[in-house]
Write a protein that binds this DNA or RNA. Structure first.
Lengths: 347, 347
DNA sequence: CTGAAAGCGCTTACAG
DNA sequence: CTGAAAGCGCTTACAG
């Protein structure tokens, strides 16, 4: 292991003290221009870079954020992860990734804490909220991303899941659908619960109730099976709201290719998230768009604010979600709120 | 910021020296059973966990691996990332994620080095190989994942891209296709070049050459445009090999929905990677499967071997890639090597 | 086996 | 503004 160059090496070459080198690399420290010049020149010659680990030890700031994610299978999360990485980097932070496998949350928690992360983004829907609590108790700010857990010590950033679900109900009712069904995600996630609850409330506003319900657990294959079960009864649903796009795509494949139904002629399908695949020509999925960019920005801001000040209060930020009308849901006869998505191609 | 509990706190409570606490948490250190018991009990009471950052400073081992990725849009990479995270974790390492935006490789490199990572996995196809070189010069082992760069100081792990391309050529020729075209990825990536070169070699073995060529740059929309350009000429191709699945899916959408062609009746389509979407019922894409799991295992092994021993030689590991016959390529009249994929459903 | 001490590479009061 | 010194929380020879 080649010993790397340290501030002492630079100090020696520049003919100054080690403290001076350190100060030269601290933007706010008092250093003369001449001193900084000498130090930077020596540093450049030696290829010196401050050791972030040593700095962490003394400042108690690692500038590392732990990000916990459950699965990257649902394309929503890769998009989030990439956004988080770039946004954190812009603020001088880096991202330590934890892919949570279930059943070992305690061990995972311990590992996160050992690395002295400055904050945590919990984007795992399956992770017990107890972990968030433990971190918060250890004095580490936590922001829940795309999930809530009140009461609790952590802030959260979500889209308006209930509002989105409600809009879907309005759309489907306005389009004249008579038998409107729902496929849930994981039952113990706030996203699935809120979307369903808003959806049911929306149906109720039209004096309607849910025609059928199945559970897809946010899994591709389980969603396909759920659709099969739901559509094997007579009469079958004439519209279905699926708790996320990842499942909605599986549902569409099942309806069209396995059951021979036409979408939306025979059945309307609506998803949630607006993942990249939803816009693919084969799907052109009508869905509720999560404001992913803004959610990421707000998450990073919230986290940094809490890192910088212990007094920063916990907050639950709910951002508006927007209905994106593509081609898988019948449109109401009269114009409706929400704009038609004109991008993409259709045969 | 709540001061966290240190080994000194534990030592005080247990009535032993600080060194003893440290040794108790070092599996190989000489400690009596009684001592370890006392220490662990005190540690448990206080909720003590060794500070990984302090440990890094003294051992010069961070147990952090930097993973550089360019884009998570192509679903191949989320799968890889999740696999890497889990496999590294199994070996006691953690993953610091860098999403490389182009044009700032030097800055990125500096950041990676500051964090004293023990090793680097470069899974970014766009990242200049100069970065890999710089890291290697800094004494940090680098393994290139799904790309090669010889001559160079870094090991690499890839699928047999050329062999895969060659098999595709054989399949399409054997099926009797007359006008076989190719859509390239990014021109300066080893994956695209090797797949194309193997493909051309395979065609040549049948006395054939490539009927047409366009560039999709591994991008969904660009691939769609490339397909459009390639199929606007008369006569049009009757088969197309696309350098990866991510693009092949865009190509299929364009052929079927925009040009009204039937796959494989009018045109065969073959991809590369075998991403999850390739198996979706809407696509059922015939493709070349990368042995992702094995590639990940080998990458982690190679990296750890190089971390543990400076003498470990650089290696270029090439793993076999397997043709997966689904429904988008016409089959040859006589049985062919490679097995039919029977999973999934088809309408 | 156990403890006292040095030292990893930094930052930051504290004097000057 | 600059330097000498303390200290962040560990690991690991070195004595005993």
């Amino acid at each position: 292991m080649s010993r790397s160059v340290t501030s002492t090496d630079v100090a020696r070459l520049a003919g100054v003290s080690q403290s001076a080198v350190s100060r030269a690399f601290t933007p706010t420290a008092p250093v003369s221009a001449e001193m900084r010049r000498k130090v930077f020149e020596a540093a450049r010659k030696l290829g010196y870079r401050p050791n972030a680990i040593a700095r962490t030890l003394i400042t108690r700031r690692s500038r590392i954020i732990g990000v916990v994610i459950s699965s990257l299978e649902n394309q929503f999360y890769p998009v989030v992860l990439e956004g988080l990485s770039k946004q954190l980097r812009r603020h001088g932070y880096h991202l330590l990734l934890f892919c949570a496998e279930t059943q070992e949350t305690d061990e995972l928690l311990a590992e996160i804490l050992q690395y002295q992360v400055d904050g945590i983004v919990m984007a795992s829907s399956t992770m017990s909220s107890g972990v968030a609590r433990s971190c918060a108790e250890a004095g580490i700010p936590v922001v829940l991303f795309n999930r809530t857990a009140h009461p609790g010590p952590s802030s959260s950033v979500t889209a308006d899941n209930a509002g989105g679900g409600r809009e879907v109900a309005h759309l489907l009712c306005a389009a004249g659908h008579q038998r409107i069904a729902f496929i849930a995600g994981l039952e113990d996630t706030s996203t699935s619960r809120e979307r369903e609850q808003g959806f049911l409330a929306g149906l109720a506003e039209h004096g309607r109730s849910c025609f059928g319900r199945a559970v897809g657990n946010y899994d591709h294959d389980e969603a396909a099976r759920a659709a099969l079960a739901l559509f094997s009864r007579t009469p079958r649903p004439d519209a279905i709201f699926v708790a996320n796009d990842h499942m909605a795509i599986a549902v569409m494949d099942t309806l069209r290719l396995q059951l021979g139904l036409r979408v939306p002629a025979n059945v309307s399908v609506v998803g949630f998230d607006d993942v990249p695949q939803a816009a693919w020509a084969s799907y052109q999925l009508t869905t509720v768009r999560q404001p992913t960019e803004r959610m990421i920005d707000v998450t990073v801001e919230l986290l940094i604010r809490q890192i910088d000040s212990e007094q920063a209060p916990r907050e639950d930020i709910v951002l508006p979600a927007e209905l994106v009308l593509r081609s898988t849901a019948r449109l109401p006869p009269s114009p409706l709120i929400g704009q038609r998505d004109t991008g993409g191609m259709r045969g």
